[in-house]
Computed example of a mutant assay.
Amino acid sequence: MVTIYDIARISGVSKSTVSRVVSNHPHVSTETRNKVLKVMQEYNYVPNSLARQFRQKHTKCIAIIIPNIDHPYFCQLVRYISAACHKKGFKTVVHQTFLNKNTEKGVYTQLQTNEFDAIILASSLLPEVEIASCTKNKLIVACNEVFSGEYFDVFCVDEEETTMKATTFLLNKGLSTLAFCADNITSPLQQARLKGFILAHNKKGLNYTKKFIFNKVSNIEDGITLGDKIFKVHTEIDGIISGSDFVAAGLISSAVRNNIEIPKQLSIIGFDNHPISLITNPQISTISNKIQEISIDLVNHLINKIDGRERAPIKKVYSGEFINRSSS
Rank of each mutant, 00 (worst) to 15 (best):
N184K: 06
N324E: 15
S49V: 15
L298S: 05
T97P: 04
D222P: 04
K204T: 03
N114C: 07
I4Y: 07
I69S: 13
N48T: 13
R193T: 13
I213L: 12
D70R: 11
T30R: 13
D238G: 14
H27D: 13
Q41R: 13
F152M: 15
A192R: 10
T186L: 11
F212H: 15
L99G: 04
T17W: 00
D228Q: 10
E130W: 02
A84I: 02
K204G: 09
H27S: 11
I294C: 03
E261K: 14
E236D: 15
L121T: 03
K87Y: 06
A192K: 14
S187R: 07
L298M: 11
D307R: 11
A248M: 08
I69V: 12
N273W: 00
F322I: 15
D183S: 13
E310C: 08
A249I: 06
N172G: 11
D183E: 08
R325D: 05
A132Y: 11
S123I: 01
I66A: 05
M40N: 07
V93R: 01
I62G: 03
R52F: 09
I213H: 08
A132I: 04
F116C: 06
I240M: 05
N300S: 12
E160D: 03
H201Q: 08
G270W: 01
K290E: 14
R257L: 13
T225H: 04
V317R: 01
N324R: 09
T280N: 06
H25N: 15
G270V: 03
R9P: 05
S326M: 07
N114E: 09
G196C: 07
L125F: 03
E161W: 04
L298P: 09
L50N: 11
N100P: 03
Y43Q: 10
S254R: 03
S319M: 10
N137P: 01
I284G: 04
F98L: 08
I66W: 03
D245K: 04
H58E: 15
K203C: 07
G196R: 08
D297L: 05
N202L: 09
P263G: 01
T113A: 08
R55Y: 12
G106H: 01
V13K: 00
P47W: 00
T168K: 10
S82M: 02
G174Y: 01
F152K: 14
D158I: 06
Q190L: 09
C61L: 14
T113R: 14
D222T: 08
Q53C: 08
A248Q: 05
T186D: 10
S253M: 13
H274C: 12
S285K: 10
P282G: 10
S14P: 00
P26H: 07
T3I: 02
N184H: 13
L139I: 14
N24S: 15
S326V: 01
K38P: 02
V21R: 03
I62L: 04
V146E: 10
S11I: 01
G89R: 07
V107K: 02
K316Q: 09
E130S: 12
E31R: 15
N202Y: 08
G174A: 11
